[in-house]
Simulated scan of single mutants.
Amino acid sequence: MEVVTKPKDFIINMALESGGKVISNFLLHGLRIKNSSDKKLILKDIKFELYTSNTLVKEIVYQGESLSNIIKKFAENGAWLGKGFGAKLFLGEEGFWNPECYTDSVEMRPNQETGIFNEYFVVIYDKVIDKLVIKVNYLQCEEEHVHELKIPLIQYKNKNQYILPLKGSISTCGNYNSLPDHRQHYSMEFAFDMAQYNVDQKLCYKENMCDEDYIVYGKDVLAIADGEVVDCYYSFDMTTSWNWDERKPYIDKYGLAAQCGNYIVLKHENEEYSFYGHLLTNSLTIKNGDKVKQGQVIGKVGNTGLSNCPHLHFQLMDGPDFLTARGLPCSFLNITDVAGNRLNFIQEENIIVHAE
């Protein structure tokens, strides 16, 4: 039996204290279960155990009909997770799963595999959840076995000090609390989008708005910290379709720009990288290899790539490659909420923050 997770080393827990309790919030992007033996086996259950200081807090178990259903649905719908742009976008790599070896039942022949894709956990408890234990129970040669895997949960702390990449009152959306949004993608787990409302607190305030009608369009985008430009694209001049078949030819021709539009990747100290997407065509003020200072204008907000209106897509990563790097939470020095209270992380979906 082979059990592998994505990520495999640790999982980031975005724990938040509220009302005397701690809300633990974390995501397992992928779980692969493979029969690596030369004999068939039968899966009995998949169990997730959540711990704090070695105290079991909660169990989540897939067994019986629920287990059969997730295995069958994974076999029917998970072929695209094996290779290609989609596999990289959602898992950070190709080949984590091999669709040719999927089983559609709890009976697994040698080399067959199954999996769980994007398992979300939200737990309210007195203390933060600090460990996930995965137990796979199976029957083989009339003997019951349990394969156990332990994964630590950490609360990530940024290694550098950052400022928000836009100034003024900024509306944010698509953060990690919006489960089906950016978070399901590997590098975008903690990404979010930024726009601005007009004086009536509306993003869209009339019919048939053009790009120039949006308040945020053309606004300066700032470097969140000192760094170096390690990747950028400046000349993509269109928005692409949300239909994959229509977008794929542009992906094949332009690569990442067809997804993110014009973009910039900055390398900061301690191997943290910031990403800025959907920028205005030919607005970049930098090029690869340039050194930048915190607060320096590096481009302008646009509406290029896979975008439904002018906005800035932002994320922090542990590497320079948008498709293979791991997403990281990003705290900011200079943001407050609408009441003037100091914020570090943007932890709520659809809130307005102010940045000086």
Results as ranks from 00 to 15, higher is better:
Val4Gln: 14
Pro7Arg: 06
Pro7Phe: 05
Ile11Trp: 07
Ile12Leu: 09
Ile23Gln: 12
Leu27Glu: 11
Leu27Phe: 15
Leu28Val: 15
Arg32Lys: 15
Lys44Pro: 03
Lys44Val: 05
Lys47Tyr: 06
Leu50Gly: 08
Tyr51Pro: 06
Tyr62Met: 06
Ser66Ala: 13
Asn69Gly: 10
Leu91Val: 11
Thr103Arg: 04
Ser105His: 03
Arg109Ala: 14
Arg109Val: 05
Asn111Cys: 06
Glu113His: 11
Asp126Arg: 05
Lys127Asp: 15
Val128Ser: 13
Ile134Asn: 03
Asn137Gln: 06
Asn137Cys: 10
Cys141Ser: 10
Glu142Cys: 06
His145Met: 03
Asn158Thr: 08
Cys173Met: 08
Leu179Gly: 01
His185Phe: 15
Ser187Glu: 02
Ser187Ala: 15
Glu189Gln: 11
Ala191Leu: 02
Gln196Asn: 04
Val199Gln: 10
Lys202Thr: 04
Cys204Asn: 09
Val216Thr: 10
Ile224Asn: 02
Ile224Cys: 11
Ala225His: 10
Asp231Gln: 04
Thr239Leu: 02
Ser241Phe: 02
Asn262Ile: 00
Val265Asp: 00
His268Ser: 03
Glu271Gly: 05
Ser274Thr: 09
Ile286Ser: 00
Lys300Glu: 14
Thr304Gly: 03
Asn308Pro: 09
Cys309Glu: 12
Leu316Tyr: 10
Arg326Ala: 15
Asn334Asp: 15
Gly340Asp: 07
Gln347Asp: 14
Glu348Trp: 05
Glu348Asn: 12
Ile351Gly: 01
His354Lys: 10
